[in-house]
Design a protein around this nucleic acid. Sequence first.
DNA 1: TTCTAATCGAGACGGTACGTCCCGTCTTGCC
DNA 2: GGCAAGACGGGACGTACCGTCTCGATTAGAA
Lengths: 198, 198, 198, 198
Amino acid sequence: MLPQTRRTPAGAAVLRGDITEAIQNAVVEELAAVGYGRLSIEAVARRAGVAKTAVYRRWSSKLELVLEIVSGVASQKLSLPDMGSLPGDLTLFLTILTKALRHPLASQIIPDLLAEAARNPQIAETLQQALRNTQHEMGVLVIQRAVARGELPAGTDPVLALDLLVGPVYWHLAVARHPLPNDYVPRLAKAIAAGLRG
Amino acid sequence: MLPQTRRTPAGAAVLRGDITEAIQNAVVEELAAVGYGRLSIEAVARRAGVAKTAVYRRWSSKLELVLEIVSGVASQKLSLPDMGSLPGDLTLFLTILTKALRHPLASQIIPDLLAEAARNPQIAETLQQALRNTQHEMGVLVIQRAVARGELPAGTDPVLALDLLVGPVYWHLAVARHPLPNDYVPRLAKAIAAGLRG
Amino acid sequence: MLPQTRRTPAGAAVLRGDITEAIQNAVVEELAAVGYGRLSIEAVARRAGVAKTAVYRRWSSKLELVLEIVSGVASQKLSLPDMGSLPGDLTLFLTILTKALRHPLASQIIPDLLAEAARNPQIAETLQQALRNTQHEMGVLVIQRAVARGELPAGTDPVLALDLLVGPVYWHLAVARHPLPNDYVPRLAKAIAAGLRG
Amino acid sequence: MLPQTRRTPAGAAVLRGDITEAIQNAVVEELAAVGYGRLSIEAVARRAGVAKTAVYRRWSSKLELVLEIVSGVASQKLSLPDMGSLPGDLTLFLTILTKALRHPLASQIIPDLLAEAARNPQIAETLQQALRNTQHEMGVLVIQRAVARGELPAGTDPVLALDLLVGPVYWHLAVARHPLPNDYVPRLAKAIAAGLRG
DNA sequence: TTCTAATCGAGACGGTACGTCCCGTCTTGCC
DNA sequence: GGCAAGACGGGACGTACCGTCTCGATTAGAA
């Protein structure tokens, strides 16, 4: 039996149940293209090859639409393997972080959502949770391991440590928007390790 | 002699020539309120208590409007007095930076413009220049002084140093949007100094 | 089954499909109020309680809008029952004419459209057609009947006759804007009959 | 001594005191071109090659501007020489009337002012006076002479007579906008004389 | 001759309407 | 019942004029 199909005027055939997925993909692309502020259900539906009613039947506003997608990403708790030493853990963490921040969609969408979070508490809260489930947990884990190994003093402030870990890379990539120079990650890892120790 | 005034139908009296200023203030407020993407000339004019034509007579698009304002801020080259030692210079720099980033309008507008810069090269370029004239120059100055004093090795990378200087604070305040804990600035200054030294 | 309705934000319920009619009524009222020259689509939409787009979806200019309405009136070909004698026919004709010209909207709109016709050929043409379908055909009919009855000579010029029939009433009501004195219609009918007979 | 001149940027030299006259000419031309409803002081000033302030210093509104011009025309009381017989007087009167109504500016402006009079009492009043000073007085004179000569009965209604005199010509020229056929005036005069007599 | 007052142009101001383009909402009718 | 199609009200666009108002320059006549 053939899967049920629908035909758009352009002739494209889309699997029936894939409408939800098509919309969500379209949302991500639209977010990257025009940002949250200019994102419109109309454009999302157009990009997904779907009628507006199909979108509104699933989500009642563009806020809901975006939050559900961000939440989906945020809920993936990441784990960080133990590399045996603070510099090793730092290097791995920074490598993962730089890779994530260099992903084209992420680098377009994240600053936009952060900006929107400045005026929309629901987006802010969802993003905080996403941060907590990713960078925060991973970063704290790195610090705890280093303290346990005796590489860092017991009173090391995880908040300050996290700022030192994530801030420079975020600033360099997402704000200053420069490419990473050679050996950036290991040199940064070394500096952070020294900074936290001293 | 009284200054010449104009009277709006509503009876408000506005100093002539202040129209330009009123518009620019309105732009800043609108940017903070709704962001660049949703900023409309119509709303700016309304908030400034001015006719749309008065805006279009001065700027031909909302991009020009915003760029001129950002450029205005960016052109104020700041100087940093020499505090005599690296920790002193770092503390002063971080104090200025945290104060700037905690300004309500700045904390609303900067992330928005950064997000917009991801898809608008002109905004990106203008922001880069603004950064260069402020954080960048000040930060490099701090490093050069420390090298001259022998507090840092001659080969210290100013790029990495700047990322360490600005990144954590920006991340903490503008991204994570948390208040600064006690003694944050001196502790961060100490950690950065240690990190840069070795 | 109840008729389908739409609800405006103000709560008014308007029958679907009546939008076209509401717009046309508004056009007539606006024409009477401010004339063709100052008629604006915006005001029409406002008066009709309808969005501007709803107007532009139907007509592309105020000229089209007005022409369609005038054409609508013009297309109603009127017939004139035979009263059996020239004075009778004349009286009936003049009665119908005076009634039409005393209608408040007509007396406001007709002079305005005539004035506009002096500089707009399309309006002029449409009005000519309207005249032909109403006064002209009826008037010629009256003359033909009288000739057939032997009340008027065979060579009676219908053009001159029509001018005598319509001109005085139009002048009195629409130009001089005076009310009709007592017995005006029968006295005028008698004079015209005598005049045509020679 | 040369007359004092002023120079416009375009280089045209205009006699100083002629500004008033230039404006009034421009008003007449604008009235004919766009009608009262769309007439604007701005366009008048432009056509006259004069600044808007020069107009507003003399008249406070376009109504005043137009009324003064119309009044100027209206104040010229016309007299009609006695041709010795009713047909002769009628023919002369109709000849003058048709000549006036065929003047290009008149045929453009009169219908427009009549239309405007339907919604502006001041214009209506001024026009009535103009009519009274021209057609009305002349027409009544024709009737009175004919009564005195015994060509018309004593009880002849001057109002009805005037409608018969002016209406057909106005209708034919200004409303139906047709050219006058051959012998129109004498044939019309004959018909009117017969109509009034019988 | 200098001053003052009037008048000129030029043009910025607030405002209204233009005709267009999207948008979110809602209804309809096909499948 | 879900879907597309599309009309609806609404809002902003950027433009074009308009009447009002202010300005600086030029002129004319009085001091």
